[in-house]
């Protein structure tokens, strides 16, 4: 019995099979959670007066919900374009360490640069976490296929969900629309609190959460960027003090 299990486990997974596994994984809980978030974004885009095409371009091009929300909120508050781009760019900084740690795992000797740099556009928190976990016991030549299968499926689901949220919110009753617009804030409240497991995350989240509304009263247009820089630096200092006390 154990021999059979081992034989199945050790049989090398072909790239095609890895791609299919990635697609199947993505269509489970990750796709559902993503679809909920992106439907909320579609509703927010409609409420903010964006065209459907523009909402879809945000999802396809930026492909990071926090950045997309920052873009819409700052645009609505009349912030200068350069400031908005800077803030969106800063929210995406997490992708650098993610890509740096992912590439040595999924890269195989024969992979072309074009494929790798194109695949990088699809990188997101979920695809990073799933690929890092799944690829540990997968042959090297199948790992990129898994990543692309997973993240391309997520990307497609995300774009479709943005369209669905945008189109549905317009035909909903005001009460339903309100629920949809509330979806993103409550999504991030839960996600950020669930994510706050390290001293660094707790300090940064707490300082940011306090700085955000306060700075909004002082200057709405600069508030997002300043909350990040001031709140983040305060949080960074605080976690250093706590770490030093503990050590």
């Amino acid at each position: 019995m154990s021999f059979v299990v081992d034989a199945v486990y050790l049989s090398p997974m072909t790239p095609a099979a890895a791609r299919r596994l990635g697609m199947r994984d993505a269509l489970g809980v990750p796709g559902a959670v993503l679809a909920a978030g992106m439907m909320g974004f579609g509703a927010l885009a409609l409420e903010s007066g964006l065209s459907l095409m523009m909402a879809l371009a945000c999802t396809a091009g930026i492909w990071a919900l926090p950045g997309q929300i920052v873009l819409i909120e700052m645009h609505m508050s009349g912030a200068p374009g350069a400031l908005t781009v800077l803030a969106v760019t800063l929210t995406a900084a997490r992708f650098l360490p993610m890509a740096v740690s992912l590439m040595p795992v999924i890269r195989a000797p024969g992979d072309s640069r074009t494929t790798l740099y194109t695949a990088a556009q699809l990188l997101a928190m979920t695809s990073w976490a799933w690929t890092m976990r799944r690829c540990a016991d997968m042959p090297r030549e199948s790992r990129l296929a898994y990543f692309i299968g997973f993240s391309l499926t997520c990307w497609t689901v995300g774009i479709a969900a943005t369209a669905a949220g945008y189109l549905l919110a317009g035909s909903f009753s005001p009460l339903m629309r309100l629920g949809f617009v509330f979806l993103n804030p409550v999504y991030f409240v839960v996600l950020l609190i669930a994510d706050a497991r390290t001293v660094l995350a707790v300090c940064a989240l707490a300082c940011g959460a306090i700085a955000g509304p306060l700075l909004y009263y002082a200057n709405p247009q600069w508030s997002v960027l300043l909350a990040g820089l001031i709140g983040g630096t305060a949080g960074y200092g605080l976690q250093r003090i706590i770490r030093r006390r503990r050590a």
Partner: peptide, 25 residues
């Protein structure tokens, strides 16, 4: 530090939307 700034920016925006929302909310 960069991670702190990114966390704080998202947390700041979300807490602002919950506490001082615009639009329908």
């Amino acid at each position: 530090w960069v991670a702190c700034v990114a966390y704080a920016m998202v947390a700041g925006l979300i807490s602002r939307i919950v506490i001082v929302p615009g639009g329908m909310l």
